[in-house]
Every structure is written in C-alpha cells, then in structure tokens.
Amino acid sequence: MKLAYLCLLVCVTTLTGCAAKTMYYWGNYQNTLYDYRKNDDSHAFNRHKTELEGIINNAPSKNKPVPPGVRFELAIMEQSLGNKSRAIELLTLEKQYFPEAQYYVDKILLTIEVE
C-alpha cells in the first residue's frame, strides 16, 4: 500500500507539473480579444482595453512578465483615442522589454510624431 501512496503522490505532482503554466501573465486576454473580434462595438473595445491595462498593472504581483505585444496593442488603442503621449510611452516600453519590436515600433513612432 505504501508503494501505491507513493505512486499516487508521484502521479499528482507529475500531473501538476504537466498542467499548462504560462511564462507570461495573460489575464483574460484571449477572451476579451475574441469578444472584441466578434462584437466590434465600443463596449467590446473598452472591455479589451481595460483587460490590457489590467494585465500591465497586475503582472508584477503575479511575478510574471507582461506578454509581448500587450503594451503595443494598448498603445494603438490609446492612439486611436487621441492619447498620443500615453501611446508613445507604451511603445517605448514595448521595445525596451522586447528589442525585436524596435523595427516596427520606430516606424510607428515616426508616424505618431509627424501627426
């Protein structure tokens, strides 16, 4: 029986090890984006925008980094609302955390600064 308990323990711990743990903190990202795709209205826009802000604000307390593209996506939404300085701030952070973003972020920064 002891062997059985040991096996059960191994089973449970292995299963928890197998369970999907994410590297990044995603919050409800997929659901709000999916919903925004499905219902292209201001409610869905606001819900997704609030979710992106929530991810950026809550990631530190979850001890996980903000996923690639989240700050970028929020920046584009802020820009569409005319919040230029917040958009520039977020885009700058995106390329700071992810150097791979520099190329296209710099291109967008140019167009924002020209406006």
Binding site: T22, M23, Y24, W26, Y29, Q30, L33, Y34, R37, P67, P68, G69, F72, E73, I76, F98, E100, A101, Y104
Partner: peptide, 18 residues
C-alpha cells in the same frame, strides 16, 4: 485572436496580431 498566446509561450516575440 488565439494565436499570440501559444507562440509567445513557445518563446517567440509575436508582432501584435490585431
């Protein structure tokens, strides 16, 4: 809408899909 997560979790920088 579902593709950024698995690619980022696989260790890649995913350009903003939207």
């Amino acid at each position: 809408a579902t593709l950024a997560l698995p690619l980022a979790e696989a260790g890649y920088y995913v350009l903003s899909v939207p």
